[in-house]
Amino acid sequence: MKNIVILISGSGSNMAAIARAAQKEAWQAKWGVRVAAVISNKADAPGLALASGLGLATEVLPHQSFDSREAFDAALMARIDHHAPALVVLAGFMRILTPGFVQHYAGRLINIHPSLLPAFTGLNTHQRAIDAGCQVAGATVHQVTAELDHGDILAQAVVPLLPGDTAQALAARVLTQEHLIFPQAVRAFFASRG
């Protein structure tokens, strides 16, 4: 079995898009791929209830319980490794990970970012795209490296900026595309490995 562990901090909509694609497309029967667990660093993350409703195992590991980023990441690695993951997916996991964590999952750690990388790494991507006068924005699925929002690009979706766009309106349109390209990128990750 090829296990996917998904990390979330919030609503879990991208996690749900991946889980629903896996169920609808019978990834387990076809390729031996399944979402083994959803782990959040926030006990009140709405995505936990969403994951439970999809029949997924959930776990909470509050980062506030640890004295350092390194201690949290070590505990998180132990939780993840319990599921023997073939792939670890950051789906709105709002933590900067330590280099040791990233190295531990090198080649099997992916993230989605709400911009057309390499443009607008970090936060507030939608407002920054509007402020810069961009004609397009979008989302990127990429391999995670020790450098924030870098790494090989696995998939991108382009969304036009519209006259009078707000960051919230643009974010909603980008999120719709995220829900399409993230499952596609996960599917392609396993397809490329046989």
Rank of each mutant, 00 (worst) to 15 (best):
Ala169Leu: 09
Ala45Asn: 09
Ile181Pro: 01
Leu87Arg: 03
Asp67His: 14
Leu161Val: 04
Ile153Gln: 04
Ala26Val: 06
Lys30Ala: 15
Arg128Pro: 09
Thr58Ala: 03
Met94Thr: 15
Leu170Cys: 02
Gly122Tyr: 15
Arg193Cys: 07
Asp149Cys: 05
Pro114Leu: 13
Val60Ser: 07
Ala71Cys: 07
Gln23Met: 06
Asp81Ile: 02
Leu154Asp: 11
Asp149His: 10
Leu162His: 13
Ile112Trp: 03
Ser68Met: 08
Leu162Lys: 14
Ala71Gln: 07
Trp31Asn: 12
Val60Trp: 05
Arg95Asn: 11
Gly47Trp: 08
Phe93Ser: 03
Val5Trp: 02
Ser40Ala: 15
Ala75Val: 13
Glu178Val: 01
Asp131Arg: 08
Leu50Ala: 08
Ser40Gln: 14
Val186Leu: 11
Leu161Ser: 02
Gln184Glu: 15
Asp149Ser: 04
Thr58Ser: 01
Ile110Ala: 06
Gly100Asn: 11
Gly47Leu: 05
Ser52Arg: 15
Gly122Ile: 11
His113Arg: 13
Leu154His: 10
Ala91Pro: 15
Ala91Gln: 13
Gln64Tyr: 09
Ala36Asn: 01
Ile4Thr: 01
Val35Phe: 05
Ile110Phe: 08
Ala29Phe: 01
Ser11Leu: 05
Asp152Gln: 07
Ile181Lys: 00
Gly32Arg: 07
Leu76Asp: 04
Ile96Gly: 03
Arg193Gly: 14
Phe120His: 12
Leu109Ser: 00
Ala22Pro: 09
Glu25Asn: 08
Ala172Thr: 10
Lys42Ala: 11
Pro163Ile: 12
Ala26Lys: 12
Phe120Gly: 06
Phe190Gln: 08
Ala57Phe: 02
Val89Ala: 01
Ala106Val: 10
Thr125Cys: 13
Leu116Arg: 11
His179Gln: 14
Gly10Tyr: 06
Leu162Ser: 10
Gly10Ser: 06
Gln177Lys: 15
His126Pro: 00
Ala75Trp: 15
Gly55Ala: 00
Tyr105Cys: 00
Ser40Ile: 06
Leu162Cys: 11
